[in-house]
């Protein structure tokens, strides 16, 4: 199962520049630190693809690191299927923006990273091969990450994450740094993958279109400290198309305005 509760998460940092700007405003302060996340409360259903959208610096990456267990909140807790997350673990895998593959291991070795405890060598090899095939890297098993294109590296990392059958997949800006066409193709693959395996997936992005095309649900964060501006289910049929779905377009414009950015220039 992959039922996730983000329970009343607050996070504060020491940051001199922002601290000065905050002055004595009690809303922005947490002790002598500056509040970044202010009592974030969210609940995700099993199998949901949630896109968290927000301007850069709004604390969405911080929230993601806390969900992964890389960082600890000052307040609140993350609960996956009734278990509180206290540290990273293979039931909730973080997919990095860049360099997530270990460069001294081949694609095969990287995908097998979470399967080290499998004692049945043949079953393990079949599993690795299955996931490499799923992301269409079958001819690149023995390549090192630096020999792959950016898109192939992301796919290999996705295969590695899925191979351990996690309850939750956490993706941080999964398409950043890819060229436009690779971005579009990769987006389609992530959606197809999600339709197929139905794992709870959290995608953080600053791209409004990506969030609306991909998400079963969209969460908009903004402000300082960050709060939830919008949390909405997206019940649009797939494949989604802004041109054929006026309501989707309407929502897109709303979000632009919400973030204080004009959608028509």
């Amino acid at each position: 199962m992959g039922h996730i509760v983000i329970d009343n998460i607050s996070k504060a940092y020491r940051n001199r520049r922002r601290q000065r700007r905050a002055g004595d405003d009690p809303e922005l302060r947490y002790g002598d630190q500056i509040l970044v996340l202010d009592h974030i409360q969210l609940e995700f259903q099993d199998g949901e693809m949630v896109c968290i959208l927000g301007p850069s610096g709004c604390g969405k990456s911080t929230l993601l690191k806390i969900i992964a267990g890389f960082d600890q909140p000052n307040d609140g807790r993350i609960v996956i299927d009734d278990r509180t997350v206290t540290r990273p673990g293979s039931d909730h895998i973080f997919v990095f923006q860049h360099n997530g593959l270990l460069p001294w291991m081949t694609v095969w070795e990287n995908v097998g990273l979470g399967l080290r405890r499998m004692t049945d060598a043949q079953a393990k090899a079949e599993r690795i091969a299955e996931y490499i095939e799923m992301v269409e890297l079958d001819n690149f098993e023995h390549h090192y990450p630096h020999q792959l294109s950016g898109g192939m590296q992301r796919r290999a990392e996705l295969a590695r994450a899925l191979a351990v059958n996690p309850e939750l997949l956490i993706m941080d800006e999964p398409f950043s740094g890819l060229d436009f066409l690779t971005h579009m193709k990769m987006r389609e693959e992530v959606v197809n993958m999600h339709e197929f395996i139905r794992k709870t997936t959290i995608v953080v992005t600053h791209d409004i279109d990506d969030a609306l095309i991909m998400g079963d649900r969209i969460v908009v964060m903004s402000g300082q400290p960050s709060g939830i501006k919008l949390d909405r289910r997206l019940d649009f049929a797939r494949p989604r198309d802004f041109q054929k779905e006026p309501a989707l377009n309407q929502l897109r414009n709303e979000i632009f305005l919400m973030l204080g950015v004009p959608y028509a220039v």
Binding site: A68, S90, I93
Partner: peptide, 13 residues
Amino acid sequence: INPIYFQVGANFN
């Protein structure tokens, strides 16, 4: 060493 590699290691227990 890039801290990401340690995070990857921690993520895979």
